[in-house]
Design a protein around this nucleic acid. Structure first.
Lengths: 190, 190
DNA sequence: GTCTATATGTAGATAGAC
DNA sequence: GTCTATCTACATATAGAC
């Protein structure tokens, strides 16, 4: 523990994370990951029992990454609206990637919805994290239907990412992000 | 032409259409289509040169199917708002499938955004058809930014379908469809 | 822990008999 | 037009040397 093995494991997960996003889970092979990391295919099975296990590790890594981002949002302000705006800015920061491959969370869930239930349930975890955090913010603003609001905001961001990617429309993406932010700004603090 | 060959071709396209929706394009094999249709794998190459050609035929079939649906929307009323409501009802009619596999158009575009440019461009055709028709309706209502409105409505529907599918949340789907319809109803006829 | 060699299955695609 | 047999490539996964 804590030596070279962990390093290799981490490198596999990071490469898989990027490839699952850019090519999709099913279209990413062990060879692809091996080519990027320089770690031979056969070696993967020392760190992971199956490809599904690699996905689980990737989802865990993404959850950890977003947890950190959400802490940053929390620290950015005491005003829940400001926190939501910070979150939108973070997401909008990867606009080029979104235009190219959509939202990493949404596109993964969409793909795995057509696979096994286990993969589907696992990939949903990132969404659940974001929904719960958004729900907290809407509760702090004073909404009784905070969870509904969180689902709405999640859906809105996903719709924007999907359409922007499908049409490769950068202008649309910018306009929609601006409109989403002005919607958050207009929320009354009850 | 017009004889048995067309029948087999049509059966292949119909089976592929269903499978591309339920399992995804890349996860659907010739064997899968052969199992459903009873037509042997090797036979496919008499009707299609490559798997990509089958996808093109499926997209063409979907475009034709939605063109027909849009004509029905046009015939339903002279009021563009009523037409949009009819369209929403048609899309909401397949709620069980949406919960299971998402929107057939959106999930295909999301998947193929990570594949070749050709497949991506082809799959976008269905979206373009819907966007153009929606744009017409918003123009008829009197919006100067009709195309923006069309993109917004498309994105909203896609976001709802994606989130409903990811969370397997039927109640959310119903609520969101109702809210979308009440939004259309509230549009002022200028 | 790390690597090579390989097993096993299945994918898309082709050849050629009928 | 329809079908069987098969090719080639590549997928996940395993075995076992070092």
């Amino acid at each position: 523990m804590g030596t070279k093995g962990d390093n290799n494991r981490t490198r596999i997960v990071e490469a898989a994370d990027r490839l699952f996003y850019q090519r999709g889970y099913n279209q990413t092979s062990f060879s692809d990951i091996a080519d990027i990391t320089g770690i031979p295919r056969g070696n993967f099975y020392y760190y992971f029992k199956t490809k599904d296990d690699i996905l689980a590790a990737v989802v865990d890594a993404r959850v950890a990454q977003y947890e950190e981002a959400l802490i940053n949002c929390d620290n950015a302000s005491d005003d829940p609206r400001e926190r939501l705006l910070t979150f939108i800015d973070i997401m909008a920061g990867s606009e080029k990637a979104v235009l190219d491959a959509g939202c990493p969370i949404g596109s993964l869930c969409t793909e795995l919805a057509k696979d096994s239930d286990e993969l589907q349930t696992k990939s949903r975890e990132v969404f659940e994290l974001l929904r719960d955090w958004m729900c907290q913010q809407f509760e702090a603003i004073g909404y009784a239907d905070a969870n509904d609001k969180a689902m709405d905001m999640l859906a809105r961001m996903q719709g924007v990412a999907l359409i922007a990617c499908a049409f490769k429309d950068n202008a649309y993406l910018h306009r929609s992000v601006a409109e989403l932010k002005s919607w958050v700004n207009s929320l009354a603090l009850n």
